[in-house]
Computed example of a mutant assay.
Amino acid sequence: MIGSEPDRPRVGVRDIEDLRGTHLAADDRDELFTAQTECTVAYLSREGWPAAVVMSFLRRDGRFWLTAVGGRDHLESLRGDPRLTIVVDNRGTGLPGRRMVAVQGTVVVHEDRATKDWFYPAFAERMAADDPAAFVRLLDSPRRAVLEVTPTGRQVSHDSRKIAGDGRGGPRS
C-alpha cells in the first residue's frame, strides 16, 4: 500500500512525486475504453517532429481501430513509421477522478473493402448512434483508410482516485 512505510507519507498528503500504485486496474481501464470515444494519437511527423492529433476510436479484440483520409499528415507519417502512442483519458465521460492510459503500438493501414465493410458500421454505431447509416455514407469516401493499432509495448496509466485528495491536495481520504 502507498505510504505504508513510516518514513514515506501517503501520496497526495505531502507531495505527489512517488506515484507508484496509482495505475489503472484492468477493469477500470476497460471501463475507460468503453466510456471514451476519443484519444490523442502521438506519432513522428514526416518532418521528424513529434506530432499529435485527436481521433475517435473503436476498440475491438484488444486493438484500437481509427480512420483517416489519405494525404493527411498523421496517416502519411504512420505509413512511413508505424509506431505511435495512443492516449485515452476520461475528460468528458462523466467517470469520476482523473484517469489516463497511454498505449504504445504499431499501426497497419487497411484500404480493402472487407475491412471497411465491417469497420464503418461498427464505428458509426459507436460514434453516431442516432443515425449510423448517415455517418457510414460520410465515412465511405475514396481516400479513407482504416487504421488498426496493435498494442506492442509499455502501457502507462494513472488513476487520481488512488491519491489522497484526488491528487489536488484536498482532504485526506
Score class of each variant (00 low, 15 high):
13 V>L: 11
159 D>A: 08
154 R>P: 08
14 R>L: 10
20 R>G: 12
124 A>R: 05
150 T>A: 09
46 R>F: 05
149 V>P: 07
171 P>C: 07
113 R>Y: 00
88 V>T: 03
154 R>S: 10
143 R>S: 12
61 D>L: 03
66 L>P: 00
30 D>T: 13
102 A>M: 13
148 E>H: 03
131 D>H: 12
172 R>P: 11
85 T>L: 04
110 H>C: 10
58 L>I: 07
119 F>K: 01
140 D>M: 07
109 V>T: 12
94 G>Y: 00
130 D>W: 11
95 L>I: 00
163 I>K: 08
46 R>P: 01
55 M>H: 08
29 R>H: 04
37 T>R: 15
136 V>L: 09
167 G>Y: 10
86 I>R: 01
55 M>R: 12
76 E>Y: 01
33 F>P: 04
122 A>G: 05
61 D>G: 00
126 R>L: 13
112 D>H: 01
21 G>K: 09
133 A>R: 14
79 R>W: 00
18 D>E: 12
64 F>K: 00
162 K>W: 07
157 S>C: 05
114 A>K: 09
18 D>C: 11
165 G>T: 11
6 P>W: 07
47 E>H: 14
76 E>F: 01
9 P>A: 10
38 E>L: 11
12 G>A: 10
82 P>D: 10
118 W>N: 02
94 G>T: 03
68 A>Q: 06
7 D>Q: 14
13 V>H: 08
81 D>G: 02
151 P>D: 04
70 G>W: 08
109 V>M: 07
80 G>I: 00
99 R>Q: 14
66 L>G: 02
93 T>L: 06
150 T>R: 15
108 V>A: 13
142 P>N: 03
147 L>W: 02
81 D>N: 12
39 C>F: 05
159 D>G: 08
169 G>M: 11
59 R>Q: 15
103 V>I: 14
41 V>T: 10
69 V>S: 13
148 E>V: 04
149 V>E: 07
156 V>N: 08
85 T>F: 05
102 A>R: 14
101 V>I: 15
43 Y>W: 00
153 G>K: 05
99 R>A: 06
167 G>L: 09
138 L>I: 12
91 R>G: 03
17 E>N: 14
